[in-house]
């Protein structure tokens, strides 16, 4: 059986999620490997989400937002644009191929582009093979959690 990668897609509500919806209503086929999570804006994407996803079994993470200048929230995608290269560096330092993380711009009217982006990324991850994290020795039982959780645990 060939390797079927698991891919997490984090899509912004206004452009990419709508674009994915358009691809769906237009009956465009793209690989089922991508499972999507909706956020309001690509600026909401915390690098923690990406690390968490890779630890939880994702072989690749695709972030999609509005084209630069078209953000529904004026400039959220620019924030994302600056965070992703830093996260890629971090991944490389951790021994994870930075190609497993990709940032793409897909507007609400670009159903066809969404299709080609997802297909292309899935193919790339397929050639990269499954992500092996065993030797990195994560403590899956005790994730870092949020400030509230840490505080609650400490008190």
């Amino acid at each position: 059986m060939s390797f079927e990668p698991k891919i997490l897609g984090i899509l912004c509500n206004w452009c990419s999620y709508t674009g994915a919806d358009l691809a769906g209503t237009a009956r465009m086929k793209y690989p089922a490997n991508m499972r999507s999570v909706r956020v309001m804006c690509s600026g909401r994407v915390d690098p923690g989400f990406i690390l968490n996803a890779l630890r939880s079994g994702a072989d690749g993470v695709l972030i999609c937002g509005c084209h630069p200048g078209d953000c529904h929230y004026v400039e959220g995608n620019y924030k994302c644009m600056r965070r992703i290269p830093l996260t890629k560096k971090l991944l490389a330092d951790m021994g994870i191929d930075p190609r497993r993380l990709r940032l793409e711009w897909v507007s609400a009217s670009e159903g066809a582009r969404f299709q080609s982006v997802v297909t292309g990324f899935t193919e790339e991850i397929r050639t990269l093979g499954p992500l092996e994290l065993r030797e990195l020795n994560f403590d899956a039982e005790h994730p870092a959690g949020t400030a509230q959780e840490i505080s609650a645990a400490a008190s």
């Binding site: 309001m40 909401r44 959220g76 400030a147």
Partner: peptide, 15 residues
């Protein structure tokens, strides 16, 4: 607030 969440992702203390 329009709930874009940019501040949430940026908050260093997760407040």
């Amino acid at each position: 607030c329009k709930a874009c969440g940019t501040c949430v992702a940026a908050c260093p203390t997760g407040a």
